[in-house]
Structures are given as C-alpha cells and as structure tokens.
Design a protein around this nucleic acid. Structure first.
Length: 497
RNA sequence: GGUCGGAUGGCCGAGUGGCUAGGCUCAGCUCUGCAAAAGCUGCUACAGCGGUUCGAAUCCGCUUCCGACCUCCA
C-alpha cells in the first residue's frame, strides 16, 4: 500500500497521519457497554466500528493491545442525590443480585458480539475489578488539588482545573458557560459548581453495591473507570481512544481532565468518535422507544422490522456508510444492503473456487494495471480514516472482474500470476479479516450437501434427456425450500436464499 | 438558548474545486431450453439565494429545514 493511515482526530478536528507512540505496538481503548440491559443495534454500530479499526490495524502489521471495558458498577443517573442506579434498579426488577444482572447481560453482550463477528478485545476489564486503581487515581487527583471531598463523596473541581488546563477542548465547551449554567437542583449543594462531577460517590445505607474507600463506603464515579483502566493497561499516554459520539461530553472530556488531573499527562493521542444509528432521523435510544435488540433483528420480531435480517447482512449495512456519519435504519435500506451483501459473498465463494490458468501469451497489460490499481485503491480508502464505504465500492469493482473471469467473459490469463494472487489475497483479506463479513450462518451438518448432490445428479439425468418439465419441477420444489438451483456452463450449483 | 454536525439522483450512501463512487430499484441487451446467477448499456444528482474563481455540488456568507450534545446513553 502506498498511502499512510490517516485518522480523524476529534481533538484537532482534522485528519492526522497515524503515528503510534511505540511502533509496532498500538494501544487502543474503546468504551464498552454498561451491562444493566441488552445492547441494542445502535450500541452495536460503535462496537463494530472499533472492531474494524482493531482488525485493520492488525492487518497492516501493528501489534495492537485492544482494551474494551465492561461497566459493571452502577452509577447514579445524576450526581445530585436523587439519581437512579440502573444496575440496582434492574436487579430489583428481576429480583436478582446486582452481580447476577451484570453477569447475565455481559454474557448476552458476548453472544451478540460473536454473532456479529466482533472480536473479543485483548483485555476486557471490569469496573468492579478495578476499584483499587480507581481509588488510587482519585487520591492522586485530590493530592494535586483538583478534587475535594464532601460528606464522603469526592468531586472533580472543574473550575480549579480550568485555571491550569483547557477543560472542554475535546467537546468544544466553554468553561465559563459550563460554570455559569447552574441549574438550581436540590441536593446539588455538595458541589461547588454545577460543572463539577463525582469521581467517588457516597451511597445510602440500602445501596447494595458498595466499596470501602478512604472517604467511606461508596461507588466510583462513572468517568473514572476508563481513566484508571486505560492507564493501567495502556499507560498514562496511549494511541487511540474510541467511543460513541454521545460519550464525547461529558464522559471523554472528564476522562481527559481526570488523567491530566492525576498525572499531568494528556492521555490520548487520537480520539475517535463513531456517529449514531438513527431511525427516521432520530437517534436510536432506549428512552425514545425506537430501539430494538439484535436478537429481534435476527428474528424479525419487532414492529419496526418487516422481516428477519442475518447478522452479516446487518454488519455489511453498517460498513457501507462511514463511521463518522449518522446512518439511518430502514427496512428498504437494509434489504438493499442484503442484496449487495449476497452479491459480494457469492463473488467471494466464486473466488475461493476459481482456478488461475497461467498463459503468458494471453497477458494484457491494461488488465494487469487495472487490477493492480484496484488492489492499491482499496487500501487507500481504508487508510483514509477507515473509509469502509469506499473500500466496499472497490470490492464491487473487483467483484465484476472476478465474475467475468468465472464466466469466461474475460480470460483469467490476462493477468500474470503475481497480479492474480494479489487480487485473491486482497479480496479474501477484506472479506474475511478486515470487514469480517464471511461468517457462515449456523446450518446443519453435511447432510444437505449430500442430499443436494444426489438430487442434482438425478436431475442431470432428466436434463440430459431434455425432460425440462421434470427438471423444472425439481428446481421449483427446491426453491420452495429456499434453495436456488443455478445451471451454469460448468454444471449446476445451488445456494440458500 | 449555547456548542457542533448534516441537507447528494427513484431509494440507501461515499466523495470531491475541473476527471465513473458503489449498492439497490427500474428499462433494455447478452448468455441460457426456461429460470437463477453473471456481464453490458441506459437513468447523471448534489436544499435555496448570493459571493470568490477561468471553473463549485465541493470554498465563503446568508436563508430554510433536520439532527446530536449541553442529564444516563454507543
């Protein structure tokens, strides 16, 4: 590949050439789910985005340590005392221990990831497993004078911090406005300013999740876990931090402040933010009631869904847009993607079965140049801030070539061996390792293969006798079982619809 | 209200100061006993109004509309 990898950095609002701190190693952190509930399709878009980032970085030769956390400590929905702890709320609802809730939805999350072909990260740390690290970090922030304790809770002092550092630089907030924007909420009196946020929170006696700290029993603040865990596993300074756009403020902004407040070092070199999945133009979210679960999608069991969709078709649908654009979900869009996806996968299978025939007499320079160019362009597109949409467009160009070789419309010998092998390698790598859309659906054992072999042999007999009625009857009946028979020049093949 | 982002052909969705996005749909053709698949051809768009420029959909300004964040959120 000729081009350098460029990443759009939310911090600078520009695409920057990616320069890792310690090549060939790359530290990648992305915010994982809070496991009080099932993840929905919108959540999955972000995880898919960073899965592709992870896969691509590895593909181009980096040794990546990918850390994606699990938030399993409950956090109050606001700092002002009357906030709800969603994990405990859920625990009461399901009459389970908070840790049972956490385990249940962690398991479910992992299952969904697997179906979506999302790789497990290198390290998947939990917030509750790192209480000590979080407490230590809070101590360091207090020691540096950027936090204060009130009634067993510790708050980050945004005003104090902003006297020395730029709070709001990631999300484009103006500190003065944040500090002025005090809304008179009850129970907010503990905080010196409305902009301050809890990094340790005292809990009421009936709260189930609780840990001992120097400030009494309580729970860690939401933002501190990512700071503490990224620091522990990737260092005080690391390469890439990702997450959904909706985490930019306050979560990521707070992370920067905490890390700088504790250690005086800007933690992240490249901030990446994945945009939202929308439904009829509105952000998909649980509170808006327009979200659905992956399992509903795969089963087609939701009023918004006209039919069931295969996980890989949905993954492809997401990858057909750029991660920084919003992507609008709709049945027509998904069905269009489904067809394009099937086309690409058919080409992939064709390619795996294709045989290269070397014949130097048939070589055509323009064909070789064209195919070589495609192989380079597809990397150029990915190097341009992981533009999967454009990369997929190139794959479709390659697809036309590959199908033409198969159909004999273009002789495969127009390519020299090196170019053909390059095409093969690149196409397979993109489908299988980078976009990772080749996961076969769970089907039966080899029985179908065997039965179809028998049926097609018998059908060939009647076809040889030009008994088209019998031949078509077999084909029509199989079609009713969603099996498509294709009579090609090289014999008959079949596929599931 | 503040901050930021977006408006692209029948639909989805990239991108860009002048050169084909791509997919889906539709029409036609080739191939085929017929289908399916595949290939080819056609359909040429960038919200509106100004400005900069030899040239803008792409840069600047204004207008309209939409969204995100500002509270838990991927």
């Amino acid at each position: 590949m000729q081009s350098e990898l460029k990443i759009y950095n939310s911090l600078s609002r520009e695409k920057e050439v990616f320069k890792p701190l310690n090549p060939p190693f790359v530290g990648l952190y992305s915010c994982g789910p809070t496991v009080y509930n099932e993840v929905h399709l919108g959540n999955l878009r972000t995880f898919t985005t960073f899965d592709v980032v992870y896969r691509y970085l590895m593909h181009i030769g980096y040794k990546v340590r990918y850390v994606r956390n699990i938030t399993d400590a409950g956090h109050l929905t606001n700092d002002a005392g009357e906030g709800v702890d969603r994990i405990e709320e859920r625990a009461k609802l399901e009459m389970l221990e908070p840790m049972e809730i956490v385990q249940k939805y962690t398991n479910s999350f992992h299952e969904v990831c697997q179906e979506f072909n999302i790789l497990p990260p290198s390290i998947e740390p939990t917030a509750t497993g790192h209480i000590v690290e979080q407490i230590e970090m809070v101590k360091r922030i207090i020691a540096n004078g950027f936090a204060y304790e009130v009634n067993g809770s510790v708050y980050f002092d945004v005003k104090k911090y902003s006297e020395h550092h730029d709070y709001g630089k990631l999300s484009g907030r103006v500190v003065e406005e944040l500090l002025e924007g005090t809304r008179d909420l009850d129970g907010q009196d503990e905080k010196r300013s409305a902009a301050d946020f809890a990094i340790w929170k005292a809990v009421t006696p009936n709260h189930i999740q609780r840990w001992v700290s120097p400030w009494g029993e309580g729970i860690p603040g939401w933002h501190i876990e990512c700071s503490a865990m990224s620091c522990k596993y990737l260092g005080k300074e690391f390469d890439i931090h990702g997450g959904g756009m909706d985490l930019k403020f306050p979560h990521h902004e707070a992370e920067i402040a905490q890390s700088v407040g504790a250690d005086g070092i800007q933690p992240v070199h490249y901030w990446m933010h994945a945009n939202m999945l929308t439904v009829n133009g509105d952000k998909m979210s649980k509170s808006k009631g327009n979200s659905f679960l992956p399992k509903e999608l795969f089963a087609g069991s939701h009023p918004l869904l006209e039919k069931a969709y295969a996980p890989m078709a949905v993954r492809f649908f997401m990858l057909q847009s750029h991660y920084r654009s919003t992507l609008d979900f709709s049945n027509v869009a998904l069905q269009a993607a489904e067809k394009g996806f099937a086309k690409l996968i058919n080409t992939y299978k064709t390619l795996l079965a294709l045989k290269y025939i070397k014949d130097d007499a048939q070589k055509v320079g323009t064909e070789i140049t064209e195919v070589k160019a495609l192989c380079e362009e597809v990397y150029d597109k990915m190097n341009d801030d992981f533009n999967t949409a454009e990369a997929i467009a190139i794959l479709f160009e390659m697809s036309k070539k590959i199908n033409s070789y198969k159909e004999g419309l273009i002789s495969i010998s127009t390519l020299d061996e090196e170019t053909y092998s390059r095409l093969y390698t690149v196409f397979v790598a993109f489908i299988r390792d980078i976009l990772a859309i080749d996961k076969e659906e769970k089907h039966d054992d080899g029985l179908a293969e065997g039965l179809m072999g028998v049926i097609l042999t018998l059908r060939k007999d009647v076809r040889d006798k030009k008994d088209w009625a019998a031949s078509d009857k077999i084909r029509d009946e199989l079609l009713r079982l969603s099996i498509q028979v294709k009579d090609g020049k090289e014999g008959t093949t079949w596929s599931r619809n």
